[in-house]
Design a protein around this nucleic acid. Structure first.
Lengths: 351, 351
DNA sequence: CTGAAAGCGCTAACAA
DNA sequence: TTGTTAGCGCTTTCAG
């Protein structure tokens, strides 16, 4: 039963005593109509029986299209990416495309290398969810003529197809929520500023505060060295050391917010009693948490879908001189980590 | 700057006025030594300058190896799979292999179809983390001569390379833990019995109980229709309806355990006060939960690594008539969802 | 409606 | 050490 060699078109042709080109045409949706129905039926039957599977490498070599695309994300462990990936694949599947998955590990060099590997694999396009504010990957794809779509990260260069959420709006909703709860002394735990979302969210924070005539003093803003739990914890420790009077903070993403929880506990504070926290992303399972995190929810799955649609459209058109921007709306999810500010009369709850 | 056509070996050869085969050899690690060092240097320089990237399709067609493998998992949303995938890729990367990711959605037909697609893509092997107890994918791979490794699921057929954890040991540790806490009336929320882990874990449960002379009555065992939160909730509702006196349950996996939390709350009960719960898998973020789940931890990342190593070994050897079984050890992680049994004197805590 | 033949880009056996 | 050539499996133009 073990057949080490795969069945080819020629095997089928010889078996049926017809030409390989006839077999090819009979099996192809778009050219089977130029073959007599009878032959088509016989070919399809034989193909099934003999277990014929098209050789993708040969097809790719001949046609110049592999029907594959590459996805690059920072890190699969960050729970926001699985739904994005599924969104991408759900539309890819409908068009017979398959995706390679690669990781930037939040490192531009790594990302560049991975993109080169993907190009060598002959991907028809790339979805890049890990771009830095200035990113050599953009130029690389341009110079190689490979369609590129950015997801949830933008690039200073401009001229790139992009699918993103309105981060500024998300932050505005978070700030407004805290203001309504009576908070005025609000801090921000930012992400690395070479990452576009970090930069944009921080800028939106200061802008929104300014619109409410609330000046943000520099010590109210601390930059974490990564968009991770660990980095969030370190940054929040610094923040608490110099902001004993703050009553709320916004974190650049959920993982940083979790780090803030940890730092808060180390200082003997509780959330939301002593300090309210808002995250960004709405990662899974937050509802189960001891302190369920209030956060800005973004449509992960839909982002994936839209980016795949955009990429396929670009691949089909072959026109790379044009670019498009898809903007999705975020939503505030209010949970237990935010509460009305309490006017502390005596010594507070710092037990 | 936009070069729609990629640079080929021939472009390089013509540019340097030498033969394509010379260029090929100069660029290949294993045959560059039969070319004069001077030429090698010139070729490499030109390749870099002109942005040459090997055409993977042509290589695959010529060599009969795509240097890709396929991974099939039930569902990316289940948080146990990301670390397994990363483990697989960490070893694949070292050998220049790339992976396709596909989903069975816990459906054997879907799995079969996806495997066919992967084979058509020419994958050199397949890692299958979604097998059912009897599974046509195994025969498919055998008949097509495609190396296959099973991860965390086994198959009744036998004769397949497998990487798994000692589920029976894990369940035994869970039972022992509950017994030590004084529980005797212990229930089990099983997964679908056509999935091997569900079957094995349930069997291990009844066996371990029997070894302690504790007979398990049938109504103490309820089968969820899937290894999911939702299915767990439904099953637990049934269980609670017919087991008002049980003091502890073991769930077939963490997601089912979460569903049990929900059902428990709907019945007005609390965990662990009224009922202790143990899960299986140790998914991420459990420490943050309002009721942190006691669970059996399995080495996800390592499972991925081992399965990739096994698959590459099998690909290299070309010998499919031999099979191996890697068995990994689980570990019990005790958290807040389990507590000593309390002798209820009056009306309990059913508030 | 079907066949013959070329060629996608690469590697390797064979020649020189 | 380098060149010549064939061919991997497929699609498609050009003939018939």
């Amino acid at each position: 039963m073990v057949q080490r060699k795969r069945v080819t078109l020629r095997d089928l042709a010889e078996h049926l005593n017809i030409n390989t080109s006839t077999v090819s045409r009979a099996l192809s949706e778009k050219s089977s109509e130029m073959i007599s129905p009878d032959v088509v039926k016989r070919v399809k039957k034989a193909a099934l029986e003999m277990g014929y599977k098209q050789n993708a490498a040969a097809y790719a070599l001949k046609m110049g299209s592999t029907k594959t695309i590459g996805m690059i994300i920072p890190d699969l462990m960050n729970p926001v990416f699985p739904p994005i990936i599924r969104g991408i694949q759900s539309v890819l599947d409908r068009y017979g495309y398959t995706a390679f998955l690669a990781y930037s590990e939040n490192n531009e060099i790594t990302a560049h290398t991975e993109v080169e590997r993907l190009i060598s694999r002959g991907v028809d396009g790339i979805i890049y969810a890990a771009a830095f504010r200035t990113d050599s990957v953009v130029d690389l794809c341009k110079s190689q003529g490979v369609p590129l779509v950015l997801v949830n990260r933008v690039v200073d260069q401009g001229d790139v197809d992009t699918v993103k959420v309105d981060d500024s709006l998300g932050i505005k909703m978070a700030v407004d929520h805290l203001l309504e709860l009576g908070h005025r002394k609000i801090g921000f735990i930012a992400g690395p500023k070479n990452i576009s979302v970090s930069y944009i969210r921080l800028r939106a924070f200061t802008q929104t505060m300014a619109e409410h005539d609330l000046e943000v003093e520099p010590h109210r803003i601390v930059e974490a060295h990564a968009l991770s739990e660990d980095a969030g914890e370190k940054a929040m420790s610094v923040f608490l050391g110099q902001n004993s009077d703050a009553t709320a903070i916004i974190a650049s993403n959920d993982l940083i917010a979790l780090g803030c929880y940890t730092a808060l506990r180390q200082f003997g504070y509780t959330c939301p009693k002593r300090l309210s926290i808002v995250g960004f992303n709405n990662m899974p399972y937050l509802d189960w948490f001891a302190t369920p995190l209030t956060t800005v929810s973004i449509p992960h799955f839909q982002m994936g879908e839209r980016s795949a649609e955009l990429l396929l459209k670009r691949i089909k058109s072959g026109n790379l001189d044009f670019n498009e921007e898809v903007l999705l709306k975020p939503k505030l999810v209010i949970r237990g980590s935010t509460a009305p500010v309490v006017r502390r009369k005596k010594k507070s709850d710092a037990s």
